[in-house]
């Protein structure tokens, strides 16, 4: 009755063809079929936001989308943000402002924040908080995340409080510069 279907979609800018079961979630297709393990499974029912991706310009919970639904559509995951050498300003801000601890919510937070900034380049703190309400973080208490997002809003950045924060970014830069491409791919 049900058999695998071929789905063709643009994922992170690349035309991609994959096979999946009709009942398989987009999250499962990304992680288990396409090995794009950035999007995370948290609640698997649309409450936690760890699986957030951008589908045709809209933020969605990939656990609540079927893989077969994205035929002909465009999906951006956290893997689609940075190049090999350079993080996006938003990602750099997450590093500089310590906007993560365990990191499990981070891919979803980044995609949610990106979708907010794509639509509303100058959000207020209240708008940032409201937009990120669907993304749960059990480590940071959210303030660092809000500050990181605000850091990329022109004219509203507050300097990172800790002296170590820029060093963290430097360390990451060093890792990216010294690691071979293969190592980065394996990581």
């Amino acid at each position: 009755m049900t058999h695998k279907q071929i789905v063709t979609a643009t994922i992170n800018g690349e035309l991609t063809e994959f096979l999946c079961e009709p009942h398989q979630s987009l999250l499962s297709c990304l992680r288990d079929v396409l090995s794009l393990t950035g999007a995370k499974e948290g609640c698997n029912d649309g409450n936690c936001g760890a699986c957030s991706v951008i589908l045709d310009g809209r933020l969605v919970n990939s656990c609540l989308v079927l893989g077969v639904e994205i035929e002909g559509r465009e999906v951006t995951t956290v893997e689609g943000l940075a190049g090999w050498q350079a993080l996006t300003p938003l990602q750099e801000a997450f590093v500089a402002y310590d906007a993560l601890q365990c990191g499990y919510c981070t891919p979803g937070m980044l995609m949610a924040a990106k979708s907010l900034l794509d639509r509303h380049p100058n959000p207020t703190d209240g708008e940032i908080r409201a937009w990120l309400a669907g993304n749960l973080c059990r480590c940071t208490g959210y303030d660092k995340i809000i500050r990181a997002v605000r850091a990329v809003v022109p004219g509203t950045a507050v300097a990172p409080k800790t002296a170590e924060a820029p060093e963290t970014a430097d360390v990451l830069q060093t890792v990216l510069e010294t690691a071979s491409v293969d190592q980065v791919k394996e990581a």
Binding site: R58, L59, A112, W131, A133
Partner: peptide
């Protein structure tokens, strides 16, 4: 109804 990701769907 829901947050941003729910609103999108």
């Amino acid at each position: 109804i829901g947050g941003a990701a729910i609103q999108g769907r």
